[in-house]
Nucleic acid binder design. Structure first.
Lengths: 161, 161
DNA sequence: CTTATTGCAAACGTTTTGCACGTTT
DNA sequence: AAACGTGCAAAACGTTTGCAATAAG
């Protein structure tokens, strides 16, 4: 059986290419290329990891105060990027969503309930079983989400001290 | 490989037993047995399926108007029951949670994105893989959630018409 | 010059909280 | 009587929306 493995978190494409892809997307939908949109894309590109809209908002506010970006723009841009398949989100229920640049393959998440760290993995066996289960129920599968919660090695170590 | 299967939705224990379990839980935590708490438990017992706090609130308001139950009590009681392991919830992000009596074994969910129907399943292969993945990452696994989204057979049929 | 986008503030839907009053023990 | 639970209304939370002003094409 294939071993599950962490998904690489380094960007797969150069920023210029990503930017072109984004501009193309905007152009072909009669949308406009704005400083705010570029800044948000750039922030996501240069900071790997998962961010809440709020975190992104505070970051951009402090890095580019002159842009005066409103949080609504963050939300609107993240939705746009998510619909375009450029970012992906993980939902944390009532606590909101976290976003990351999604130029990566599909993956699931394993989350530390102590420090909040999020790791990614892809497991072929689970993917296959999910399809099989959907089929057994007669469902046309569209999507799935799977999260494993636990305590990460570092936090376990701290607990023991 | 074992076939995944729907989890029975009929209650596994008689109401009297459940009620005693609940009373015992309350007693051992110096909590009080109130009409509101009993009514909520009973409503969950007699109506299988998944309910939002709002739905439960409206139901209890119309069935037992004289109780004058506030929605805060519904939330507080559902939290209590969930912490005690008597009910379980599924999260639907910003759209809130749905609760069901959780006197059943662990299971995951397959959800129709068209009509909202929720079916339950348990798949040993997936459970095993999850444990294995947690171990590979050095995590002490505490919990997991998995949801499959798709279109149920009935809605597929309707779509074709 | 047209159309999309923005920031702002208000509205939203779900959930939580503070508090005075009621109930259970 | 003590302690916990309640309803209510207000607040909190993440998110969305209406709108007049602004910027992109």
């Amino acid at each position: 059986m294939k071993k599950s493995q962490p998904v690489s978190t380094s960007p797969l494409i150069p920023y210029e290419a990503l930017l072109q892809q984004f501009k193309q997307l905007l152009r072909s939908n009669n949308l406009k290329f704005t400083k705010q949109r570029e800044t948000i894309l750039h922030a996501l590109y240069t900071h790997s990891g998962h961010f809440t809209p709020e975190e992104l908002y505070r970051f951009i506010k402090s890095e580019y105060p002159q842009l005066n970006t409103g949080i609504a723009t963050i939300y609107r841009t993240l939705s746009l990027l998510e619909n375009a398949g450029i970012v992906t989100s993980i939902s944390f229920g009532t606590q909101g969503k976290k976003y990351e640049l999604g130029v990566k393959a599909h993956h699931d998440h394993i989350i530390c309930t102590n420090c909040g760290k999020i790791l990614e993995f892809y497991d072929e066996a689970i993917e296959k079983r999910q399809e099989k289960i959907a089929k057994e129920f007669g469902f046309k599968m569209e999507d799935h989400s799977m999260k494993i919660f636990g305590i990460c090695p570092e936090c376990q170590k701290k607990e023991r001290e």
